[in-house]
């Protein structure tokens, strides 16, 4: 197949289904998936839970993608971009499910591009700026990926049994992806901690940087507690995740940081839409084009 110009190539096959230029509108990731809602599940809470897990993945995906072409080596550009892509895929499925359960006509693109900061329900850990720009560094990116993927893998391992068929299916796919992400972060932690004195200092500092935001992962939220059999209560995961992290720290000769958790803001955390200032800047970049040309299609 040959085309006179790139635009024609991109447009090929779109036919009558014009695409939203900045969205994913070409494809419904849940097309054909069994979407039945389990009986007796509260709709508002299930919507919120899908947003919580979806926003975690979307925001960290955006953060990891920032490293593409800026990582310490070419293989790492590719690795972080691949991990970001897996998380973006998980986010698409979860945001689509959130929109569908909510039943207010919002699709994955509307949820990703047209919500404001206070409507995002991700944990604050995923939004802080760990580089590659000023103030960030690769070691804190690795520290965050290690903690987050260990936690999410523990969540997804249990979510496989969820009464919601979509959450269960998303989790079953995600488990294997997350195991690769966790291994990758664990292996880098060993490499940095066991490298030079300087790389070790950076790894220690990276862990200290993210540690105040770790506790929030395990605080059970009313949304999770309102969905027994559907959601996972994260407070039950702490021993398993600690064991994984302690294994990595032990092999790396590191100590688990003892740093107090970052306080909630008036009792609210990322799960309630109370974020650090980093999220606003991230969303500004991610959403700018889609918002400046609303509904643009090709």
């Amino acid at each position: 197949m040959s085309f006179d110009n790139a635009y024609e190539a991109i447009n090929d096959g779109a036919g009558e289904d014009a695409h939203w230029a900045f969205g994913t509108g070409f494809d419904d990731p849940l097309a054909g998936v069994d979407r039945a809602l389990p009986a007796g599940v509260p709709v508002a809470e299930l919507t919120a839970y899908c947003l919580m897990l979806g926003d975690d993945a979307l925001v960290l995906s955006q953060r990891l993608a920032e490293w593409c072409s800026r990582a310490p080596e070419l293989e790492e550009d590719v690795a972080l971009a691949n991990i970001a892509l897996d998380l973006l895929g998980q986010a698409r499925l979860l945001l689509s499910r959130a929109g569908e359960v909510e039943g207010a006509g919002r699709d994955e693109d509307t949820l990703a591009y047209l919500r404001d900061e206070h409507e995002f329900r991700n944990v604050r850990l995923v939004e802080i700026d760990c580089g590659p720009g000023p103030g960030g560094d690769f070691a804190s990116t690795i520290a965050r990926l290690l903690v987050f993927s260990s936690w999410r893998l523990a969540v997804f391992s249990r979510l496989v049994e969820s009464a919601d068929p979509v959450l269960s299916a998303v989790a079953a796919k995600g488990v294997k992806e997350l195991a690769y992400h966790r291994d990758h972060a664990a292996q880098w932690t060993l490499r940095l901690a066991g490298g030079t004195e300087y790389s070790r200092e950076r790894m220690v500092a990276g862990l200290a940087r993210v540690w105040p935001l770790v506790g929030e992962l395990f605080d059970p939220h009313p949304v999770e507690l309102a969905l027994p059999g559907v959601a996972v209560d994260p407070s039950l995961l702490r021993p398993e995740v600690d064991q994984v992290l302690d294994t990595v720290f032990g092999a790396a000769g590191l100590h688990r940081p003892e740093i107090a958790p970052l306080s909630p803001v008036a009792g609210r955390t990322g799960r309630d839409g109370a974020h650090t200032e980093a999220l606003g800047y991230l969303l500004a970049e991610m959403q700018y084009l889609a918002r400046s040309l609303p509904g643009a299609s090709w």
Partner: peptide, 28 residues
């Protein structure tokens, strides 16, 4: 899911010469 602190010793023979002596350069 078990944690792998080192890349598992995968036995992936070379598709060109068949040698079993191969090394992972990148998981991704």
């Amino acid at each position: 899911v078990p944690l792998n602190l080192v890349p598992p010793p995968a036995r992936v023979p070379c598709p060109r010469c068949g040698s079993a002596e191969t090394t992972e350069l990148s998981r991704f």
